[in-house]
Design a protein around this nucleic acid. Structure first.
Lengths: 77, 69, 69, 77
DNA sequence: CACGGCTGACGTCAGCCCCT
DNA sequence: AGGGGCTGACGTCAGCCGTG
């Protein structure tokens, strides 16, 4: 059950975990950002966190090119 | 029955089974490739989140130490 | 030269090439499998680090907010 | 160069990145732990961080079983 | 229990790219 | 420029496991 045989189920599990982790990540980032905004309002360089690289509901691995160029650009930003 | 028809039926069944397994293999390879892309993408996302969390933790630690002065 | 020996030489070279490519394919599949395991392991490690970083960030945030009282 | 063809180079790159990230992760964890030790010395539940699961120099993926049971146990701890 | 869907592993062909 | 090392993709066989 933890390790399914079918690739579809593995992908589904990874997408689910990724969605949960991304939600928790963004929530914590927002909380910390809200707690420290009163301390340093001028240092708010609100660079997009790039946690999830696109606006899709789920990563939708089908629309990913050769070596995930968008992610590469996300890493260099 | 006619042994000729028996052999023909057997051959046709085998051919049909091979055909199905052929297309199944194609789809399986496609899914496997997609799974690898999923893993690589997930690694990249987790890398970004890790870096962001580390940076935020450093900043918050500096603020915390600054409060203690 | 003797055409018999020419054909034999050609066949031997082909067989040797097939043999090499056979073992190369084995090693390639092994490396690919190992690569997938590497990705899965990396994902698990990054997951643990992410969770630990989030927990530490939450704790530090609570301490920071407690200092502001 | 960023995406090599050989699997060996891909594995080497991933191991290198993992080693760097693990080092940075442990360093930050130690720093924060050292900065907050004066505040709450009694709440020091020094649970092993489980960032890297074993003592090997590099993860050495060869010695990993079916579904990384050690990591699974690490998640549940 | 037999049957069929998916996948692991194999061998082969085609192709890329590094090396000489 | 050509040869050889690796890998992508294919078809086939064997085997597992859920489903009827």
């Amino acid at each position: 059950m933890a390790n399914p045989r079918k690739f579809s189920e593995k992908i589904a599990l990874h997408n689910q975990k990724q969605a949960e982790e991304t939600a928790a990540f963004e929530q914590v980032m927002r909380e910390v950002m809200g707690a420290t905004r009163n301390a340093q309002p001028q240092y708010l360089h609100l660079s997009p966190t790039l946690g999830s690289y696109r606006g899709g509901s789920l990563p939708n691995v089908n629309q990913i090119g050769n070596n995930s160029i968008d992610l590469q650009s996300a890493l260099t930003n | 029955q006619n042994p000729q028809q028996i052999a023909e039926e057997t051959s046709r069944r085998r051919e049909l089974r091979l055909m199905k397994n052929r297309e199944a293999a194609k789809e399986c390879r496609r899914k496997k490739k997609e799974y690898i892309k999923c893993l690589e993408n997930r690694v990249a996302v987790l890398e970004n989140q890790n870096k962001a969390l580390i940076d935020e933790l450093k900043s918050l630690k500096e603020l915390y130490c600054q409060k203690n002065d």
